[in-house]
């Protein structure tokens, strides 16, 4: 976008070389996605994060914003994922009484459910002949992004590919919980929330908060515990597997 010469071109170059151009574009896409989601009547199959990501990608193409330059400048936003992960510990503490009330299924079955969430996909991908790099990118598919980025980097996967996996998993999990929950007549909002959080990470958790605050609380719990457990389990499991 720097074909224009003269003072106007200089001004444009100054604007686009500032990280605020990337931040403004991201912020705008975030708000536009949220707005569009409400206008579409809050569809379960199309969460706002998907809309925002598509709008951002289209914006980058239309503005001829090089993706590498964008990624470099948007780093000012993504570094905040560190403290944001720490922040997930606060709802965990605030919901401690809920964990105590339903501690048996949560603490006994969550590690199993979290393991299966990774295992099913890994087994299917391995059978279908996916490369080791693709497997490493696929493994943290049910883990919330700030934790999943760390896991994928440790396993030697590709972060953009992992992000694609997160997006698909979040959307499919939200939809599956909706359909299966009705079919199996699961009415307990604590279970619905827990399953949404442990399979669909942040995208499922956002959906759970739409159902009720109780479901949302259990989704944060499921998301947090799955993230912690998977973060500890996967690198060790991969190390054992490669020996």
């Amino acid at each position: 976008m720097s074909e224009i010469a003269g003072p106007l071109g200089e001004a444009l170059a100054a604007v686009t070389s500032s990280p605020f151009a990337a931040i403004a574009l991201t912020l705008w896409a975030f708000l536009a996605g949220a707005w569009l989601f409400v206008r579409m009547g809050r569809p379960v199959w199309c969460p706002p994060v998907l809309l925002s990501a598509v709008i951002l990608a289209v914006g980058l193409v239309l503005l001829r914003y090089p993706i590498e330059q964008y990624r470099l400048q948007a780093h000012w936003l993504t570094v905040l994922l560190g403290p944001a992960t720490v922040a997930l510990g606060i709802p965990l503490y605030q919901q401690m009484h809920h964990i105590r009330a339903l501690w048996k299924p949560v603490l006994l079955l969550l590690p199993l459910a979290a393991t299966l969430a990774a295992f099913y996909a890994l087994a299917l991908a391995a059978v279908l002949g996916a490369s080791p790099e693709a497997l490493a990118s696929l493994a943290p598919k049910s883990v919330t992004a700030p934790i999943a980025i760390g896991i994928t980097e440790q396993l030697g996967g590709s972060v953009p590919l992992m992000m694609a996996g997160l997006l698909v998993t979040g959307v499919v999990a939200t939809w599956c919980v909706d359909v299966f929950g009705r079919r199996l007549r699961v009415t307990d909002e604590r279970i619905i929330g827990l399953v949404l959080g442990l399979n669909g990470h942040a995208i499922g958790t956002v959906r759970a908060f739409e159902i009720s605050p109780l479901a949302g609380a259990f989704a944060s719990l499921g998301m947090g515990l799955t993230g912690i457990f998977t973060a500890f389990m996967l690198p060790f499991a991969f190390r054992l597997w490669q020996v």
Binding site: A113, A121, A125, K141, A173
Partner: peptide
């Protein structure tokens, strides 16, 4: 491989965890 693993894997995982948690 990636797409099938994601969609089918998530499908199975949601079904299993719903049944497990409801049972517990």
């Amino acid at each position: 491989a990636f797409g099938v693993a994601l969609v089918l894997g998530t499908f199975l995982s949601v079904l299993t965890s719903l049944l497990l948690m409801r049972h517990a």
